[in-house]
Design a protein around this nucleic acid. Sequence first.
DNA 1: CGGGCATATAACCGAAGCAGTATGTTGAGG
DNA 2: CCTCAACATACTGCTTCGGTTATATGCCCG
Lengths: 111, 111
Amino acid sequence: MSVPFDVLAEPARRRILDLLLERPRSVGELTERLALTQPGTSKHLRVLREAGLVTVRREAQRRWYELRPEPLAEIDAWLAPYRRLWAASLDALEAHLDSQADEMTEQEDVT
Amino acid sequence: MSVPFDVLAEPARRRILDLLLERPRSVGELTERLALTQPGTSKHLRVLREAGLVTVRREAQRRWYELRPEPLAEIDAWLAPYRRLWAASLDALEAHLDSQADEMTEQEDVT
DNA sequence: CGGGCATATAACCGAAGCAGTATGTTGAGG
DNA sequence: CCTCAACATACTGCTTCGGTTATATGCCCG
């Protein structure tokens, strides 16, 4: 579970990261937005913490969880050699759509 | 499980994709390299197939599995907003290392 | 110092995932 | 046809995971 891939397999954890992308948040706040129980949220946060994807700052009883994106680089690195492949097919799609657009401007009356 | 994130949570499946990155391969070949049983390999391939990450081409009794990277774009898309964040910290690291390198060239005798 | 708030940890349960064994399926070749 | 080769599917046991309820911890405040 300590690998970023496993951590991100859980939708709730991806949502947490998405929420932290905007700004640091408290457990209560996250719990509310996730529609989970508080212990459930805490459990996911623990996993994220142990994977190094978040850090905690204590303030009285409140704990502010904060994003730490570095471990995501591992995923990005794995993804890298594949990126050019689907990029190529997307380019092909774009080219296709572009040529269609061209045809349409040439005809000028395709409803 | 149909989401790319879940599919990639399994190390064996990532290895399969890595192997298919080089060229299409038969089930037997993959089984050998993964040190799995043949049914185990077939099972992972089924998951990859259902997620659209591989396609099959039949040739007599042999089946050639082939990479289909498009679904990985979903992961890449999710990753996108985070990329600039860790990129920033990596830049900072680079800058730091660069400045160290500078210092070293200035001194010229750091063993 | 006692009570309440915010959060963490523990204990428990059901569901799902993975690996392995056994068996089914399809095509080639004698 | 019969058999073998390559692969898929079925079934089973085990482990792990995610969610919930119950309880512990730490801190502020009256």
